[in-house]
Design a protein around this nucleic acid. Structure first.
Length: 418
RNA sequence: GUGAGUGUAGCUCAGUUGGCAGAGCACCGGGUUGUGGCCUCGGUGGUCGAGGGUUCAAGUCCCUUCACUCACCCCA
């Protein structure tokens, strides 16, 4: 049995790792600009947390979780986090912030785990960058988050389509849900197999049936059932997006798989990542903090699928990165001592330096320096030692000069600046 | 969980009616006793995904199985 990587888990190497890192860094930069601060929380929580927040019947909780018994006497059931929001809410309540200082702005970054069948843009371990805002019930806050996502995707040079919708709240959603249920029962014979299952479990999902789109289009629309405050809320969000020049489309069939969402819901869709096209998704969850035992505090947020974003980015951008400024080639033991000393000096001067193996020939090492994309090759052999010099070869134009050992750092710094 | 497609060198793939496992790229070395790329010559590298069957003979035909990919489902 070979020791291969687990299905749905990935090793990110070289350009792939850089692409994901770039997305993470970009998201952090934008979030900081919005005065959002980082929160770091565990990857492992009680299973119950997810059961109580995501809804017992959601697929995530029902069949996608990595859950197992802890080794304590009480046999606590633990779960690797399938998403970030419940953990952040739990931490927020744990710290007593819901009572002491309810208005908080958090971002998190890290791996999530879901045991799904892998496909393009879908993995069993994947990274999410998420933002959660507590204590803000206003529409401006929702709009601000979408505007932030737009800023983020613009910095990456990524084209997406924003879709927005409102799911209503505790006042008006029950009536909408009931209407869908009745519509579904009335069209029972026309519904596809999947929709039969959806009907009783999660009627909202009837709306995004892909088997019979035409039929789904005749289903009741949430817009027709919104109460006045909910209608006003989504109208304000849309108005603010328009004023901020964020293009969006209203998708009345946009629903969420997780039960805790209320009112505003949105997604950013990319056509560059296969069928799993939602690269960012979010919305409002005003009842969640209270449902998890905290005060009645509003919440809203989103999560970015980091790998999906990376997939949508131009892969060539990350090919030639991480190339050293200088590759040092030492021939012989004495030269190696001098070379390591030189390397340390250059690194202190903030240059990116790689020592090449002293056990191979000059030709091979130059070839390697070239392949690494090094700007300079620094060659030290017996001749150079005798004269206290270093051969400085510019690999881009093949210009080579012999320079005093003491002048190397200054020379390279000057050469690399232009 | 369901369906389809694909498994041959590290990577991308060729392999005819069943007849000695190949190419390009990558890697290593020579052409240059201490000078990269381009060129040229050579080399390393394979349980042909695995197991079974048919056959004188299987990468090729049959059965089973596993993995990967994409899609459904679901979702970031």
């Amino acid at each position: 049995m070979a020791l291969t990587r687990l299905r749905g888990f990935q090793d990110l190497i070289g350009p792939d790792a850089r692409a994901v890192g770039f997305v993470e860094q970009c998201a952090r930069t934008v979030a900081e600009r919005y005065s959002i601060s980082e929160i770091r929380i565990p990857l492992l929580e009680r299973l119950e947390l997810y059961q109580r927040s995501s809804g017992e019947t959601s697929d995530v909780v029902e069949k996608q979780m990595y859950a197992f018994a802890d080794r304590d006497d009480a046999q606590t059931t633990l779960a690797l986090r399938p998403e970030g929001t419940p953990g952040v809410v739990r931490a927020y309540i744990d710290a007593g912030l819901d009572r002491s200082d309810p208005e908080q702005r958090f971002y998190y970054y890290g791996p999530m785990f879901r045991r799904e069948r892998p496909q393009k843009g879908r993995f069993r371990q994947f990274n999410q960058f998420g933002v959660e805002i507590f204590g803000r019930a206003d529409a401006a806050c929702d709009a601000d988050l979408i505007i932030m996502v737009d800023e983020f995707r613009r910095e990456l040079g990524l084209e997406v389509e924003f879709q927005v919708n409102s799911l209503g709240d505790a006042t008006c959603r029950p009536a909408f849900r009931q209407a869908l249920l009745e519509w579904g029962r009335a069209h029972l014979d026309q519904l596809c197999e999947d929709c039969h299952a959806r009907l009783e479990r999660n009627p909202l999902r009837l709306l995004d049936c892909k088997t019979d789109v035409k039929l789904a289009a005749t289903a009741p629309s949430s817009a027709d059932y919104l109460c006045d405050p909910c209608r006003k809320h989504i109208e304000t969000v849309e108005e603010l997006l328009t004023k901020a020049n964020v293009p969006y489309v209203v998708n009345p069939r946009l629903v969420r798989g997780l039960d805790y969402y209320t009112r505003t819901t949105f997604e950013a869709i990319s056509n560059a990542v296969g069928a799993q096209s939602a690269v960012v998704a979010g919305g409002r969850y005003d009842g969640l903090v209270e449902a998890l035992g905290g005060a009645a505090v509003a919440g809203t947020g989103f999560a970015i699928g980091v790998e999906r974003i990376a997939l949508a980015l131009d892969a060539d951008r990350f090919k030639r990165d991480g190339a050293p400024d200088a590759a040092i080639i030492a021939m012989g033991d004495r030269a190696t001592v001098t070379a390591m000393d030189l390397a340390r000096e250059l690194r202190t001067a903030r240059l990116r330096v790689e020592m090449l193996s002293p056990e191979r020939g000059l030709k091979a090492l130059l070839r390697r320096a070239d392949r690494l994309g090094a700007h300079f090759a620094l060659i030290i052999g017996d001749n150079e030692l005798a004269q206290s010099v270093v051969q400085v070869r510019d690999l881009r134009n093949s210009a080579q000069q012999s320079l005093p050992r003491a002048d190397i750092a200054m020379h390279l710094r000057a050469a690399l600046i232009r």
